[in-house]
Design a protein around this nucleic acid. Sequence first.
DNA 1: CAAATGTACATTGACAGGCGATGTATCTTG
DNA 2: CAAGATACATCGCCTGTCAATGTACATTTG
Lengths: 116, 116
Amino acid sequence: MSIASDMLRGNTDMIILAHLTQRESYGYEINKLIQEKSENRFELKEATLYGAFRRLEEAGCVSFYWGDERTGARRRYYRITPEGREAFARYRREWAEAVALITKLIVQENGLKEER
Amino acid sequence: MSIASDMLRGNTDMIILAHLTQRESYGYEINKLIQEKSENRFELKEATLYGAFRRLEEAGCVSFYWGDERTGARRRYYRITPEGREAFARYRREWAEAVALITKLIVQENGLKEER
DNA sequence: CAAATGTACATTGACAGGCGATGTATCTTG
DNA sequence: CAAGATACATCGCCTGTCAATGTACATTTG
């Protein structure tokens, strides 16, 4: 794993919700999509993924139904709820804010002397 | 606090190092600086702060010396080491990468149908 | 002068999220 | 039928954050 998992922490829920706003999906597929989009530089571990789903369910952010696959392993399809959409919007706002803030905190004001 | 601490998690070390690249300082002051820069929207809790210093010390990223204050509480001044500067540079790279990646993952491609 | 407030550092225990390891069941392919 | 892919699930450990609490000294204020 090239991206530290602490960079991910707290953002898994948001990332999952982001996928679910686009279309209903199931855990395994979401994981694959994330791997693809990130060019394998970062992968939600399964334990993390399923833990996140449990959290999201408990929070009322997603609902699920079992797919009726005739073949292959059964799939648990997740659907984002209205609450989930709200939560996602909130997450995104917070995320943007946090990024702006941290960026500000770690930017080097090169050449700027800070004496006073 | 308006910024969730999980958004911060894993970045405290980097934020502290950022301050120390500018000048030597001590815990209390760094905390105040962060509060100021963030307009009080986010504050490192003391336990977090001192925990981070211990980590940074153990990792050889900072060294410290006691200030010789004649008056007031004694201060533990921290200085960033060469290893600390390297670590900081690394953190920043990773941070930028992670931000770019997560942003990509949560961006809504509105109007773009994703059927295939 | 006593109490309150501010400066400054420090530790402890609880909690939560991520993860390695492991387990289940099914289907496909050689 | 063995191996590998698909798919879900849980347990226990580790680590970072935080509330609570404690120390000590200085200044302000009534």
